[in-house]
Amino acid sequence: MFGWAIMFLIVALIAAALGFGGVAGTAMSAAQIVFVVALIAFAISAVMGLVRGRG
Rank of each mutant, 00 (worst) to 15 (best):
Q32S: 14
W4Y: 07
I14L: 12
F42W: 03
V11E: 09
G53P: 03
L50G: 15
L50M: 13
V36A: 14
A27S: 14
F35E: 02
V36T: 13
F35N: 07
G19M: 05
A38H: 03
M28F: 07
M28W: 03
G3A: 09
I33P: 01
A43E: 02
G19D: 07
G55I: 01
M28I: 02
L39G: 15
A41S: 13
A17M: 07
I6C: 04
V36W: 08
F2Q: 13
A41G: 12
A30R: 05
A12S: 15
G55R: 12
F35W: 08
I6P: 00
L50V: 04
G21L: 14
G55S: 12
M48A: 15
G22C: 01
V11K: 01
L9H: 08
V34N: 08
V37S: 03
G21Y: 08
I14A: 13
I33G: 00
G3F: 02
V34C: 03
G22P: 01
V37W: 06
R52H: 06
A17I: 04
A15W: 00
S45W: 11
F20A: 15
G25D: 09
I40Q: 04
L39H: 00
A38Q: 12
A31H: 04
V36H: 00
A43D: 07
A31P: 10
G22S: 07
V34Q: 08
M1G: 08
G53Y: 01
S29E: 12
F2I: 03
G49S: 12
F42K: 12
I14N: 07
F8R: 04
G25F: 01
F42V: 10
A12E: 03
G19R: 06
G55W: 00
V23L: 15
M48F: 04
A5N: 05
I40Y: 09
M1F: 10
I6E: 12
A43N: 07
V36E: 05
G55K: 11
I10A: 14
A43Y: 06
R54D: 11
L9D: 08
T26C: 01
R54N: 09
A27K: 01
F20G: 11
I14H: 00
A15P: 02
A46C: 01
R54E: 10
F20Y: 11
M7Q: 11
L9F: 07
G19A: 04
V34I: 10
L9K: 09
M28L: 13
I44L: 14
I33H: 08
F2K: 08
R52E: 15
F42H: 09
F8Y: 14
V37L: 15
G19L: 03
I6K: 11
M48T: 14
